[in-house]
Design a protein around this nucleic acid. Structure first.
Length: 884
RNA sequence: GGGCGCAUAGCUCAGUUGGUUAGAGCGCUACAUUCACAUUGUAGAGGCCAUAGGUUCAACUCCUAUUGCGCCCACCA
């Protein structure tokens, strides 16, 4: 069989095959196992409109690594998958499709339009799911959820009703961000600000009493002047004191407006006099409320001027700006125009400049919800990796604003509010009915003339329930009890506010519990120049293209290995060659082993060798390396340092296992001990790297003798510390031999540099033949030796190891070998330091202020740390003695 | 205005609670080619770890300031 294996690893052939097998055998499905600890991850649901980009690839590779790792470590894992209905995004996509037929959504009407959206979803909505499968994601697909599922809607409605009953949801007219293209309100988070090169226009408003006298105001949006209802100045401003209380005539409109005084006005900016447009600016809105001004809306929902001044009726807001400026200029009322950079909100979906717009919307009162979410983080119950995001989160939470949750679109969860026309006619406050199901009649007047609120809820109003609504909350089923709260949330920094923070709030409000324990925030994937990858910039590297060219394992491994914790990822296509080459290296090393393996020789437990310490040096060394890498990988994965784990695995396999070990053992490859060690190393290594590279490991696993079933179902290798400890003794022995050789050589050269030096070298097999000649010459020149003898082609006879000479120093090719004296010194320093730290810790713990007042968990962790340090100290002591 | 991150080899980046000789990948140079793997191997060149101070026996690592780049939040009449 082995002879048939191709020289190159072919990912295409294996990947589809194994994913199908995993799915068919239900390897991803999670059931409640009372004897196991649960480990669950709830996927950040991609938009149904989504197609896989590098951000997804990174995000989901990380989750898959965690899930596969934890599963192998014996947890009952669950990776809950799903998609988000993505209100505006999806509606836009379907509207675009309609536009091709020359239709608008209004032409179809609400019900038919929504039917079209569902149709679209059935047809295209699972694209992203198929792509996640190509990425190897081990989600439990049987549980696939969608934020518009019927029972998911039940949860959303339930939450709305509960919050309304708690008076945490209210309706009101406020200035919100309005997208004139999407014709809907947007939350503050959905209106992303960016800088614009604009102008500051100075407009002259004549006084009523004396039309030759003016007050000049500065504005960036002159078209809103049609809605001005005051001009405000600072009461301390000497320039304007005398005008306070007087009236102005608003040009073009000819409305009388008052000059008011307010301390909030910055005297330095512009002219120090501000036009006040309460219906079109949040600050002016506040001023309007405070000073009882009139609120005059000058725009229609699509961003055109309304009939406030008939001349401008129907003009687009930017056209109107030009027209108004021209008209003012004609009247001599445009004082000057200066360049001015300003930042304006843009719709996060269509990038149209949003208009601050006065309208009636639903809001969630956030301050009470934020409280427990703040405390949990402050008390360390919820941890961010990397920790710096904690600050960002807290800062936002502590300054949280109310959340505008109504959207004037059709695709989404309809607001469960009904209006009684009869009651409304009398008093608008009486006519509101908030209900889980559509009420048959008005509870007050028994009228059946009810209509439901036209608006739908913000997409994030459903997403923030994701960690428990996916378990069919508000039903309290067994899965919810077992798998909730989830263990880790893996996500991108962009959605900390949108999503992470709100999930924490929802978790506390509705489940009295955190939704997850750890939040791992990975970086943003950027191109080589540091720009965000986006279609419009044309700098996208398509993960699917990489998969078909280099394979999924290569994609995953490369991506992970360059993602250091929380740092943005700068990506170029060449990066993936490394992953492909590595997969190929694993393939060929395995092929080599398979070609040389005698299956009947390997039915032996490693312990036989390790206990008797009969292992030869190469075998002992590689085993010790394997287990130290295993230890490091475990540590790295537990602290979310995926790149470090990946890089350790890479350099171990390539530069230690392949470059040195496999070369060293070639002459004795048929020996039983070598057969066993070689096999065990490969077999264990495959298990360790499986979470990173699931496909190639599964493929090789099935080629190996004595392996059954999927590698995914195998246990994670047990960390045999005694084998690492063996390393120390072996190392010491080795190092002594080497150092002595060097010392002898040096001594001889120093005494008589011209004296004849003979060196006997043992060299690995691969350095024989033509390869060795230039090397030998090199050594001869450097060491100025007369003769260089090669002792057969392999070692390890007594006191002879692989050595290469460089500048008269001997470099041990076997990693981890060090100068004994150096090692001693280092160890001593470490011991000293540890001892002083232990003293400090002991003092701290002995301090009553600390032990009695600090939270118990903190005291406990400090105690644990102390214990750890003490064991560490003992270990160091032992090492020191060994060195001596 | 507030906050955060980054500055290390030609390029892209690692660097584990400070420890003496700073690493990887790519690229470059020389050599090797029936041998598991050219998606390879061996060796090599290439670093005032942004700048200036400070703490320390010891600083790429900690502190302060400066410069440059990037990001987030708030405000901007």
């Amino acid at each position: 069989m082995s002879e048939e294996l191709s020289k190159q690893y072919n990912p295409k052939e294996t990947e589809a095959k194994w994913y199908e097998t995993w799915e068919k055998n239900n390897l991803f499905s999670a059931r409640i196992s009372p004897d196991k600890l649960p480990y669950s991850i709830i996927i950040p649901p991609p938009n149904v409109t989504g197609i896989l980009h590098m951000g997804h690839a990174l995000n989901n590779s990380i989750q898959d690594i965690l899930i596969r790792y934890k599963k192998m470590r014996g947890f009952q894992t669950l990776w809950m998958p799903g998609t988000d209905h993505a209100g505006i995004a999806t509606q836009n996509v379907v509207e675009k499709a309609l536009a091709k037929e020359g239709l608008k959504r209004q032409d179809l009407g609400r019900d038919k339009f929504i039917a079209r959206v569902w149709e679209w979803k059935e047809q295209y909505g699972s694209t992203i799911i198929h792509q996640l499968k190509k990425l190897g994601c081990s989600c439990d697909w049987n549980r696939l959820r969608f934020t518009m599922d019927t029972d998911y809607s039940t949860a959303v409605t339930e939450v709305f009703v509960r919050l309304y009953e708690k008076k945490l949801i209210y309706q009101g007219s406020y200035i919100i961000n309005w997208c004139p293209r999407c014709q809907t309100a947007l939350s503050d988070e959905e209106a992303s600000h960016s800088e614009l090169e604009g102008h500051l226009y100075y407009l002259k408003y004549p006084l009523k009493d004396n039309s030759q006298e003016f007050i000049t105001v500065a504005t960036t949006r002159p078209e809103t002047m049609l809605g001005d209802t005051a001009v405000a100045v600072n009461p301390k401003d000497e320039r304007y004191k005398k005008f306070i209380g007087k009236l102005l005539i608003l040009p073009l409109v000819n409305r009388q407006i008052k000059i008011i005084a307010d301390h909030s006005i910055d005297m330095e900016f512009g002219t120090g006099a501000v036009k006040v447009t309460p219906a079109h600016d949040p600050n002016d809105y506040a001023l309007g409320k405070k000073h009882n001004l009139e609120f005059i809306n000058v725009m229609t929902v699509d961003g055109k001027i309304n009939n406030v001044v008939p001349k401008y009726l129907g003009l687009d807001r930017f056209k109107a700006r030009e027209q108004i400026l021209e008209d003012l200029k004609t009247l001599g009322l445009l004082d000057k125009v200066t360049p001015h950079t300003l930042s304006a909100g843009h719709c996060y979906r269509c990038h149209t400049i949003v208009e601050p717009y006065l309208s009636k919307q639903w809001f969630v009162k956030m301050k009470p919800l934020a409280k427990p979410a703040i405390n949990a983080v402050k008390r360390g119950k919820l941890k961010f990796y990397p920790a710096r995001w904690t600050k960002v989160y807290l800062n936002w939470m502590e300054n949280i604003q109310d959340w505008c949750i109504s959207r004037q679109i059709w695709w989404g969860h309809r607001i469960p509010v009904y209006y009684c026309k009869n009651c409304n006619a009398k008093n608008s406050k009486n006519g509101i009915i908030v209900s889980r199901t559509k009420p048959l009649m008005c509870p007050k007047c028994k009228s059946t003339d009810l209509i439901q609120d036209e608006d739908v809820l913000d997409t994030w109003f459903s997403s923030w329930l994701w960690p428990f609504a996916t378990f069919y909350w508000p039903k309290e089923n067994a899965d919810l009890k077992y798998f909730y709260p989830s263990s880790t949330l893996v996500t991108a920094p962009e959605i900390i506010f949108f999503w992470v923070a709100r999930m924490v709030m929802a978790g506390f409000e509705f489940k009295k519990q955190l939704p997850f324990k750890d939040v791992y925030i990975h970086g943003t994937v950027r191109d080589v120049e540091g720009k965000k990858m986006s279609k419009s910039l044309g700098n996208v590297i398509d993960p699917l293209e990489i998969i078909s060219e280099y394979g999924t394992d290569a994609l995953r491994f490369s991506l992970i290995s360059i993602t250091s914790q929380g740092q943005d990822v700068f990506l170029s296509k060449e990066r993936f060659e490394q992953g492909r080459n590595f997969a190929n290296k694993i393939w060929n090393a395995s092929r080599f082993i398979l070609l040389n393996l005698k299956p009947e020789e390997i039915n032996v437990d490693l312990c036989i060798f390790s206990k008797n310490q009969k292992l030869n040096i190469a075998n002992a060394w590689i085993l010790s390396r394997l287990y130290s890498v295993l230890e490091k990988v475990e540590k790295d994965l537990e602290s979310y340092k995926f790149n470090e784990a990946a890089n350790s695995l890479y350099s171990f396999f390539w530069h230690e296992f392949c470059d040195w070990y496999l070369e060293l053992i070639k002459p004795e490859i048929k020996q039983k001990e070598t057969q066993v060690v070689m096999y065990k190393i490969l077999e264990k290594y495959l298990r360790i790297i499986h979470p990173f590279m699931p496909f190639i490991t599964e493929e090789i696993w099935h080629l190996l003798p004595n392996t059954e079933g999927s590698i995914l179902e195998k246990k994670w290798p047990h960390l045999q510390k005694e084998l690492i400890n063996l390393k120390v003794e072996q190392q010491i022995q080795l190092a002594f031999d080497i150092i002595n050789t060097v010392r002898n050589m040096r001594a001889e050269l120093e005494i008589n540099p011209a004296s004849r030096v003979d060196i006997n070298l043992s060299l690995p097999d691969k350095l024989t033949g033509k390869t060795i000649e230039p090397l030998l010459n090199y050594i001869k020149n450097l060491a100025k030796v007369e003769s260089l003898n090669i002792i057969d082609n392999y070692l390890p006879q007594k006191n002879q190891y692989v050595v290469v000479l460089k500048d008269l120093q001997i470099i041990m090719p076997l990693t981890g070998l060090v100068d004994i004296e150096d090692q001693l010194k280092k160890t001593q320093i470490k011991i000293d330091k540890l001892q002083s730290e232990i003293q400090k810790k002991e003092l701290m713990l002995a301090n009553k202020n600390f032990s009695e007042r600090a939270p118990k968990e903190i005291v406990d962790t400090e105690k644990n740390k102390l214990a750890e340090m003490q064991t560490q100290l003992i270990k160091l002591g032992a090492i020191k003695n060994g060195l001596r």
